[in-house]
Design a protein around this nucleic acid. Structure first.
Length: 829
RNA sequence: GCCGGAGUGGCGGAACUGGCAUACGCGAUCGACUCAAAAUCGAUUGCCCUGACGGGCUUGUGGGUUCGAGUCCCACCUCCGGCACCA
């Protein structure tokens, strides 16, 4: 008897799948298109190819592949493509360090990912493979940019950005962790630069409303996006600086506290600051303060705990509700990027304004009755942020603040001094990057014509080869003089190319559409293909993309639908977020030296073991700690299944006749049908793979327990054969090579072409049940009883039990609870 | 501070709609096979008392509802994740 040899089995089936192109599917209109089958688009987030795949990849694709297989065997035509999110910073950093061009390092990594995905046996339609760094792909990324530009959804503007002084480059928001550069740990600074933005804020309301359209997304991901979008209802109120004739709108969620405004604060970045203080005695102090704030890191500035600072401007504005003049300040606790960059300060009812008022000895005025001991800081019980009756607010006094709120907004509106307003925390998406390794922004700058988009028919704007990748405070592309100098597409005069590239999140915001028609060189995609396959039915990936990627892709889908290129509003109907695998309780990292190399485990135990293990270690949506012993346990289980197959194959298992089976043979068949039922339900109930696999383990254990007694007769051998074949069929989505091999040996055909097994209700039902007998809720005995026994019969049985009688002894039964088929509880006193 | 999630054996975890707590796996102990070891197969394994039969206790803590609570309700503690001077 030869042992379980995953190397041989896995190579064999990988060859079959590659040669026969088993997992390729056709588009509408193409030969082989399956018109009658329902479609299912199963997609895992595409990997960023850097080095080699890690365990996170293994888990993501193992989970996704299990789902793809499960759906195929339920009659769906499953599209399951793969690609690479190949532009990005790590390849560029590597280039700066080693001089190796990013393209070369990226291609090498892609080769490694591709090879390992094949070695893992993931059922990928390789005919649809793509890389976002190829001109064939980014040509269409640029095309989408132009479409957004045409619609006014892409625009160029000056804005404060996050700047890392050590790397001399802007950083994406997601690369700023706790106010520090993710790469080098340096506190980031803010700079003002002219940049390209996508107008995602236009979609804030729809991004919130369309959560309704989603089938199944984890609640916490929806919540995170909601918080990120940060919708607040309130009012815009205009305060006027009479001296200069300037209007200052502010956004407030508390127009009911307007009468309590005792001062007014601008953010240090406020554009009118210069005009307010130029030539005044305050000028020097304000300048100094603004410069000091500009030098502060984002981390320092964000610290709520430090004392409030600011400088008076020597100017005042008029409060529109009572005509009061209140002094103006500049202070860094007011942020330019939220609201209008200016606030009315109500120290009586806002803790931050209160702190500032105390520091600068400004009046604190109560306009709403009430005290909250949690926030109160003085004898008056202020500040107070709760509800109550209005006071010190003229004709609104005595009214509830909620009621006054509406009246004040209505009054402001009638006076033209304000209006109801909604404000979002969400900012427009800054997509420019002063980096080399990304898709060039398809725009030129002409002295005569200004910003001119590159015409569609001249795409792609190809990324030129350069030699020095180091950032110099501008894009390394700026050094490619021959490339930068071009002619204006409009007037033909001299023009210069945009040297910034696009954020890599732009590339990954539409790749799931390109998969549907990846070789199209006349269009980004064929509309019929997109209409057929979209939306993605099941998306799988790490929760770290809960906001950025998932929100950007939702935005793109909506924008493209508005442009008329897509027929869906949401890209991903269902989302599954897999948890992170740790080792020794810590996140894996090269610096900690606790990484797990999937290749090493695949080499030692085979892909089936590695895949099954990551699905078995716990509920896939939760994280788990990697355990070498756990891997061995799964390998042991697969080996047991293998040996069972070899044994029963040798014994010559024939067709099983479940109706005729008796005794242990029948019990084994019942166990097999129980496992089918359990595994199927676990799959459907949120991909509970750990318990589905446990059910197959139980089936194999049961087969081992009884097999030696069954080999004697043909019906018994057939039952063992059925158990082994069923186990193979159920384990196939996790361990496809072993599943296919065992099934072929026992059944002669291909398990992936067989429908998912169905549990036979006749074998799920048992004619006896274990009756649990309790006395006062405590378990006292277990009795085998007929499944169809009446309540009276069950009570009879319970009372007859010796173990039960011992506890009834001399006591009075006051109540009898009978749950048919389950339990009897006797309540005694 | 706000939002979300989780606390169950030595460990990872299971338990459907309120009905056998600890499935499955790991680890550990013992046995079979072996000259021996590994591998494999089998048995035992929540804690406490008992020679045994048995009994008592146990799902973060405290209370409640119920014939019956890991599951429902109230209060609290701890841990993890996200956001955070958002006006």
């Amino acid at each position: 008897m030869s042992g379980y040899d995953p190397k041989a089995i896995e190579a064999k089936w990988q060859r079959v799948w590659a040669e026969e192109r088993t997992w390729e599917v056709a588009n509408p209109g193409q030969p082989g298109f399956e018109a009658e089958k329902p479609k299912s688009y199963v997609l895992e987030m595409l990997p960023y190819p850097s080095g080699e795949p890690h365990v996170g990849h293994l888990k993501c694709y193992a989970v996704g592949d299990a789902i793809a297989h499960f759906r195929r065997r339920h009659g769906f035509e499953v599209i399951h493509p793969m690609g690479y999110d190949a532009f990005g910073l790590p390849a560029e950093n590597n280039a700066i360090k080693t001089g190796e061009p990013p393209r070369a390092a990226t291609e090498r990594s892609i080769d490694s990912f591709r090879r390992q995905f094949r070695e893992w046996g993931i059922s990928i339609d390789w005919s649809r493979e793509l890389g976002t760094h190829t001109p064939e792909y980014y040509r269409w990324t640029q095309w989408i940019f132009l479409k957004l530009f045409e619609r006014g959804l892409a625009y160029r503007a000056e804005a404060p950005v996050q700047w890392c002084p050590v790397d001399a480059t802007v950083l994406a928001n997601e690369q700023v962790v706790d106010g520090r550069c993710e790469r080098c740990g340096t506190p980031v600074e803010q700079r003002r630069l002219e940049q390209w933005f996508f107008r995602i804020t236009d979609y804030a309301e729809r991004l919130l409303a369309d959560f309704e359209l989603l089938e199944s997304w984890p609640e916490h991901v929806v919540t995170m996006q909601r918080n990120w979008i940060g919708r607040s209802e309130g009012a815009e109120v205009v305060f006027r600086c009479e001296e200069l004739g300037l209007d200052f709108p502010v956004f407030t969620t508390r127009p009911d506290t307007l009468f309590g405004a005792t001062f007014f604060v601008l953010a240090p970045e406020h554009p009118e600051l210069e005009r307010l203080v130029a030539g005044t005695p305050a000028e020097a102090a304000v300048r100094e303060y603004v410069n000091r704030v500009a030098r502060e890191s984002v981390e320092e500035r964000g610290d709520e705990a430090r004392p409030k600072t600011g400088v008076p401007l020597g100017r005042s504005v008029v409060n529109p509700v009572n005509g009061e003049e209140i002094p103006m300040f500049v202070a860094d606790y007011v942020l330019m990027e939220y609201g209008t960059g200016a606030i009315m300060a109500v120290p009586g009812h806002d803790t931050r304004d209160y702190e500032f008022a105390r520091a600068f000895d400004l009046p604190v005025r109560r306009v709403i009755e009430g005290v909250d001991p949690e926030t109160a800081r003085d004898d008056e019980g202020l500040p107070y942020a709760g509800d109550g009756a209005m006071t010190g607010s003229g004709r609104f006094d005595g009214k509830g603040n909620r009621e006054a709120y509406a009246e004040i907004v209505a009054w402001l509106e009638s006076e033209g001094r304000g209006k109801a307003a909604v404000n979002y925390r969400l900012r427009d998406w800054l997509v420019s990057r002063q980096r080399y390794w990304g898709a060039p922004i398809p725009v030129v700058y002409c002295k005569e014509c200004g910003i001119v988009p590159v015409p569609e028919d001249r795409l792609p704007v190809e990324l030129p080869e350069i030699e020095d990748y180091a950032p110099q405070g501008r894009s390394p592309l700026a050094a490619a003089e021959e490339w930068v100098a071009t002619e204006c597409p409009r007037c033909g005069g001299a023009a210069r190319r945009e040297t910034d590239t696009m954020d890599t999140f732009v590339d990954s915001s539409w790749y799931f559409i390109r998969y549907l028609d990846p070789r199209n060189d006349a269009a980004a995609w064929d509309r019929a293909a997109a209409d057929h396959w979209l939306p993605v039915d099941q998306y799988i990936g790490g929760v770290e993309h809960a906001i950025l990627h998932l929100m950007y892709a939702r935005f793109f889908t909506k924008a493209l639908a508005d442009i008329g290129e897509l027929g869906v509003q949401e890209p991903f109907a269902s989302l599954f977020t897999q948890g992170m695998i740790t080792r020794d309780g810590a996140k894996m990292s090269k610096s900690k030296g606790n990484t797990v190399s999937p290749a090493e485990y695949v080499e030692r135990y085979g892909a089936d073991t590695a895949r099954t293990y990551v699905c078995f270690m716990g509920p896939p949506e939760r994280g788990g700690d990697w355990s070498d012993e756990g891997v061995e346990g799964v390998n042991r289980f697969l080996s047991r299944l293998w040996r069972l197959c070899e044994e029963v194959e040798g014994a010559g298992a024939g067709e099983v006749d479940s109706a005729a089976a008796e005794g242990e043979a029948r019990e084994l068949l019942a166990k097999a049908h129980w496992a089918i039922d359990k595994a199927t339900r676990d799959f459907q109930r949120g991909f509970q793979f750990n318990t589905a696999i446990a059910a197959v383990m139980e089936l194999v254990n049961e087969a081992y327990r009884v097999k030696d007694g069954l080999y004697g007769d043909p019906a018994g051998t057939a039952a063992v054969g059925f158990a082994a074949a069923t186990a193979a069929s159920l384990i196939f989505p996790f361990a496809p090579h072993l599943g296919a091999e065992v099934w072929e040996r026992l059944r002669g055909d291909r398990v992936w072409e067989r429908p998912w097994p169905q549990a036979d209700p006749a074998l799920l039902a048992s004619d006896t049940v274990t009756l649990v007998v309790q006395v006062n809720g405590k378990l006292r005995d277990r009795i085998e009883a007929a499944a169809d026994a009446s309540e009276a019969e069950l009570l009879e049985l319970a009372r007859a039990s010796e173990k039960v009688r011992r506890h009834l002894d001399g006591k009075e039964i006051v109540k009898e609870v009978v749950v048919p088929g389950k339990l009897v509880n006797l309540v005694v006193r």
